[in-house]
Nucleic acid binder design. Structure first.
Lengths: 241, 241
DNA sequence: ACCTGAACACCGTTCAAGT
DNA sequence: ACCTGAACACCGTTCAAGT
């Protein structure tokens, strides 16, 4: 039913498939199209399931054609990561430290959780192209500066919040040591066992370790950090931080 | 110089290499030995550089022999991760929240940084065998409980601190989006450029973004968290956390 | 400039065969 | 019980060849 079966004027000779790109036609691929499909494939197959060959097949193209648009697989993965950073929808500022930091962190989390398979690429590899992250950094530093932090303190606070975010999101997309979920679900049923194993505090906490609400944990941690910051700001920087 | 050169009574026939395990001798491999060498190899070649075949070669053994001691490569990586958790040297408690939390976090960080290549395996994959982590969890929960937190609050605080630790250590072993180091080193030289690009706060902070002292960042973030916790504890849990 | 195809040097893992 | 070797179905990437 396709062109292979009806002899075309151009490749009339024999049944030989044409080799180069169809002359005169638009390019079949573009970096954007490659990355689009790559992201979709990662979500479908997981990061480990992505291969240059499968991606090429999905695009209906020879695998080596990809190398015209990305330097190699590593650059492809970097490209996916950058897509994620750029998909963060940075909210407007209101001038309130707590509000604004919460909103920005939520925007980050939302962008990450939207692509749960791909997100480990963002959190886990060094961003070579840093451009994408600058807008988020600007937003965070603006909030912290407006709250009264000096640039150096703002950078520290930014890095602290960001580290917390990375760890939290990693847990949520459930790579990373969870201390949560299924490997702890049975903990609640083994309190006696844990007590006698010399783990009284784990035993006492086991009902709470056995469940996790990611949104609650997110809010709790961020609140703790912000409380620390407010404390610091209102203390005029005199507290021992 | 080894037994291959002196004709043994048992494999006398021809120069044919023996195929099975030398009869009567001790097993060549053990799960421990496999994991020992695997860790060493990861540190030498990076996680991506580790393969079942290279590991087998390093052990002087056919690659398929490894499967007698680990289920598959995934289980091998899990084994390496568990080694890391178990290598955390949990410090004695003193009864002071700040002291004890700092000491425990430092012990975690120290164990991680000791194996910078392997550590991403610990932070990044779900710990199937949870046993290793229990001792650390017990230590953390004990500290928090002694400071007066209810089990449910202690679990929240534990998860917050752990998320921060994961993010911080990931940055230090420099997988993960750094907002630091070399991709920012040149930022300091481009303030004017950043200003005109609509990034005044990044511009103002660029001298501080361009450098990072991991120990300082670690202390700052942890102090912020602990300040939030102390605040919470002394407020009798009435603060809005 | 862009796409193709064969080839190379790797992978993890199954399975049958050894001892 | 444990180790081996061939084989299978994959990889990423180089390089020469097409248009």
């Amino acid at each position: 039913m396709n062109s292979r079966h009806m002899p075309s004027r151009k490749s009339a000779a024999a049944g030989a498939r044409s080799r180069g790109r169809p002359p005169g036609s638009d390019p079949v691929l573009s970096r954007d199209r490659v990355l689009d499909v790559a992201v979709r494939l990662v979500e479908k197959l997981g990061v480990d399931g992505l291969s240059m060959r499968k991606l090429a097949a999905e695009l209906g193209v020879d695998s080596m054609s990809l190398y015209n648009h990305v330097a190699n697989k590593d650059a492809l993965l970097d490209g996916i990561a950058e897509r994620l950073v750029l998909s963060i929808e940075i909210p407007e500022r209101t001038g309130d430290l707590r509000n604004d930091l919460m909103a920005l962190a939520n925007a980050f989390r939302a962008a990450a959780v939207r692509r749960p398979q791909a997100v480990s690429l963002l959190l886990t590899r060094e961003l070579r192209s840093f451009a994408g992250g600058l807008a988020s950094a600007e937003a965070a530093l603006a909030i912290l500066a407006e709250a009264g932090l000096d640039p150096d303190k703002a950078v520290h606070a930014f890095r602290t919040a960001f580290a917390f975010l990375v760890g939290t999101v990693l847990r949520e997309v459930s790579v990373g040591p969870t201390f949560s979920g299924q490997n702890l679900g049975d903990l609640a049923h083994r309190r006696a066992e844990l007590e006698s194993a010399g783990m009284p505090f784990v035993a006492a906490a086991s009902p709470h370790l056995a469940v996790i609400d990611h949104m609650v944990e997110f809010d709790f941690g961020l609140s703790l950090l912000i409380a620390g910051l407010e404390n610091y700001v209102s203390g005029g920087g005199s507290r021992r931080i």
